[in-house]
Structure formats: structure tokens, C-alpha cells
Amino acid sequence: MLSEADRDGLLALGENLPGIWYVPSTTAAERKSILRLIICEVVLDQKRLQGQVWINILWQTGATSEHSLQRRVHTYGDYLNIDKLRTRVRELNAAGKMDKEIASALNAEGFLAAQNCAFKGDNVWLLRRRWGIPAVKSTERAPIPSDGQTEPIPPKELLQLSALRRRLSSNSWHAA
């Protein structure tokens, strides 16, 4: 049987558990001992929730608690919020964003790529391709100087220049 002083000491220890846990002098072995004193059993299930690890803790008191954590995935097929990610990529793409801009937006919104890393333009390109989302074509053209002035080339002339470039590179023109 515990004395009143011992009981009060244990209660104070329980209320100060985070302080004891994080103090640099507490060793890993002591943390493990603390866990064994308060936890009876832990069950993990990686299949129950897509992209998450489900955790069930049976405490020494007989109480149970359920938790889930986003887990690191190797493929987007196991991704936690794949539908939300797909929808967001489609929205940003429809707004005219390029892959790198989409990646920056996804990172700012807290999305993580597979392997729990930040998105890059290449990740977005891969996902767009997989989901059949077309690339955004830039409609801006670099201005070409003409007589000391800078004017954009009209689209019709750009097509003509593009055709000319193809013919020149294929050596299909012969001198007459």
C-alpha cells in the first residue's frame, strides 16, 4: 500500500510527465520504462486507412485510445488525400499555373509528395500526365526588337516562323 506522500509524489510525477520526458538528462532507457508503466499494448494497422497508420493503445488503466498518423508512402496509390490532391492540381492547372507554380502552391498548402518530401515541378508533371491533365501552354511570347522598338510577334506569324524553322532544320529546301 502506498503512503499518502508516495501517492502525492506519483500524481505530481504524472502531471509533470512532459517535463520529465523532454529534459535532456532523461535517457532513452528511462523513457522506455515510463512507457511500460503506462501502456499495456499497442496495435498498429497500415491497411485500415489509406495512407495512414492506425494505432490502438491499451493503457494500464484499461482505457483505450485510437490514433492515426499520415504515413510515408512510396506511391501515390497509397496517398492519404489523393482525391483532394488531384482536385487541387486540376484547379491550379485550370487557373493557368505552370507545374512549378502548382508545386509551390501545393507546398504552401501543406501537401506532401510521395516519400513525404516537398513537391517539385517534375512531381506535378508526372501526376498531370497520369491523370490526363493537359499542360498549360504559355501564351506570352518574348518580344522581338524591330527598328529599335519591342513588339510581340502576332500568333499567325509565329506559326509561319515555326514552319520555316522546321523546313530549314529538315533540309527540305533546295536551291533553285
Rank of each mutant, 00 (worst) to 15 (best):
W59I: 02
L35F: 04
M98D: 03
S170N: 12
I102A: 04
V42S: 05
K156E: 15
L112Q: 10
P145S: 09
K100S: 12
L49P: 01
K84A: 12
G19T: 11
R71C: 07
E66S: 12
N56F: 06
S68T: 07
V53Y: 02
L17Y: 01
V73S: 01
R31A: 00
N171M: 11
M1I: 11
P152Y: 01
Q149H: 15
D122N: 12
W21H: 05
A63S: 10
R90E: 15
K120Q: 08
I39F: 03
F119K: 01
M1F: 12
K100A: 14
V43Y: 14
K137M: 09
G77L: 02
W173I: 15
T87M: 06
L13D: 02
Q46G: 08
A108I: 01
L161A: 03
T150F: 15
Q115E: 10
W125R: 08
I57T: 10
P24C: 04
G121D: 04
L17C: 00
R166V: 09
R129C: 00
F119Q: 02
A28I: 08
R88V: 03
I153Q: 05
A118H: 09
A28G: 06
R130N: 00
D83I: 03
D83H: 12
K84H: 11
R130S: 11
T26E: 01
K32Y: 06
R128D: 00
W173P: 02
L168M: 12
I144V: 14
N116W: 06
S146Y: 15
L161M: 12
E157T: 08
G77A: 04
E30S: 13
T61P: 03
N116R: 11
L13G: 09
R167T: 12
I20F: 10
D147S: 06
E30R: 07
R129I: 00
I102Q: 00
W125K: 13
L168W: 08
P145H: 03
I55V: 14
L10K: 08
W131N: 00
I153T: 13
R7V: 05
R166N: 08
D122E: 13
S162K: 09
E140W: 12
A163F: 10
L127E: 02
D45N: 15
S138V: 08
P155F: 08
G19P: 00
S3C: 10
W54E: 11
S172G: 08
I144S: 08
I20C: 05
A142N: 14
A94C: 06
P24H: 04
L17D: 03
G121W: 01
H74F: 06
A63W: 07
W59H: 09
K32L: 13
E41L: 09
Q46W: 12
N93F: 02
M98N: 10
Q160G: 04
